[in-house]
């Protein structure tokens, strides 16, 4: 990888496809936070799940918060939080990536290569509707409000500590 540039702003990274209903939940949270928080407090982005871009986005960050849609059998709208800084995350994310390289694999690849952020928090939000019409399920609509608040708290708490994740 090219030289990694350090960026002290926390990164909020929504992963998914906004055209496939609940799969776009990560991007929706990132967009809400972008509108709600000052740009010098947080860097909000959306990616489709491609491994090189994910790793490049978080490498060199003190704190990265990733939101991805999960399909694990839990009730739709369930939110789970994992600290991936030191341990792998469970394989409960929607397997929509090509060639089987998805978020869990991206994390482990980054760990092996020394390209992890200082701290990596992963939020999994359980999806239900992935249709081509792009409509989001009511359960996800509700959960987005709560999840946006949780991440806002994470970011503010981090920034209050001076970014010392």
């Amino acid at each position: 990888m090219s030289p990694v540039s350090s960026n002290s702003r926390p990164l909020v990274l929504g992963i998914g496809n906004r055209l496939r209903g609940d799969d776009g939940a990560g991007g929706m949270v990132a967009a809400r936070l972008r509108a709600a928080m000052p740009t010098d407090a947080v860097d909000c982005r959306t990616l489709d799940g491609e491994v090189a871009s994910i790793i490049d986005a978080w490498a060199g960050r003190r704190l990265a918060i990733v939101i991805d849609c999960a399909v694990s059998g839990a009730p739709p709208g369930s939110i789970r939080r994992f600290d991936a800084t030191a341990a792998p995350i469970p394989a409960l994310f929607a397997k929509t990536s090509t060639h089987g390289i998805g978020l869990p694999e991206a994390i482990e690849l980054a760990r092996a290569l020394g390209l992890m952020p200082g701290r990596l928090i992963v939020y999994a939000i359980e999806g239900k509707r992935f249709g081509m019409d792009g409509r989001v399920s009511p359960e996800i609509e509700q959960a987005l409000i709560k999840l946006t608040g949780m991440i806002e708290e994470d970011v503010e708490s981090n920034n209050r500590r001076g970014g010392d994740a």
Binding site: A52, L109, A112, L113
Partner: peptide
Amino acid sequence: LVKDALYVKK
């Protein structure tokens, strides 16, 4: 090798 590959792909 893998780091460079990721960058090339990116």
